[in-house]
């Protein structure tokens, strides 16, 4: 019976081979039950094609487009935030690098050194010295606090942006 069911379905879909079609015709002539099954399946198939699409709410498209605009806007502000955070860190790095030139080295100190290599080593040491002092003693806890504060603030804005993009479609 399962085989004939499959053949009837294939007939509905127009996928029967010549042999299968011949077999089905013989079966239809032989059995009233198969006639009923075929008619019922044809009825199901034709009526399934009559089912109308269901419609979304009338304002659906405008809600989507408003959500996309909002998302684009929040993406822009997200980019601005990342750029500003990156700028702060770059600025801090640059300050740390140039600070020794103003604090540790006078212009005359360069003249006192004879060779280029000696000069370079001196500059390198001068850069490292104040940086190293920042991570020693009370400086370490201060730097730790600054970095932790930076991470907390960045984390807050990051998750806030994520939350806003999730609720992008809310009116």
């Amino acid at each position: 019976m399962k085989k004939i069911d499959e053949i009837i379905n294939k007939y509905i879909d127009g996928e029967l081979s010549a042999d299968e079609l011949k077999f089905l015709e013989e079966e239809i002539e032989r059995s009233e039950e198969i006639q009923i099954k075929l008619k019922a399946l044809q009825l199901v198939d034709s009526n399934l094609r009559l089912i109308k699409e269901e419609e979304t709410s009338p304002e659906f498209t405008s809600v989507i487009m408003a959500g996309i605009r909002k998302l684009k806007k929040s993406k822009k502000s997200n980019d601005k935030f990342i750029i500003s955070i990156a700028s702060v860190f770059i600025l801090m790095g640059v300050l740390v690098l140039i600070l020794p030139f103003f604090v540790g080295l006078s212009p005359n100190s360069y003249k006192e050194e004879a060779g280029l290599i000696d000069n370079s080593i001196k500059i390198f040491k001068a850069i490292l010295k104040p940086m190293w002092s920042l991570f020693k003693g009370s400086g370490l806890s201060l730097m730790g606090s600054i970095i932790s504060f930076g991470i907390i603030i960045s984390g807050y804005f990051f998750f806030e942006n994520k939350r806003q993009s999730k609720t992008g479609f809310e009116k």
């Binding site: 069911d5 379905n9 509905i12 009923i36 099954k37 019922a40 399946l41 009825l43 198939d45 399934l48």
Partner: peptide
Amino acid sequence: KVILHRSRNALRDLIIKNNLMKEIL
């Protein structure tokens, strides 16, 4: 195709079971 056929067969059986054929045709 198996899923499609089975779904249609289930709907077909529902029609046959409830004698809708005689009423509709």
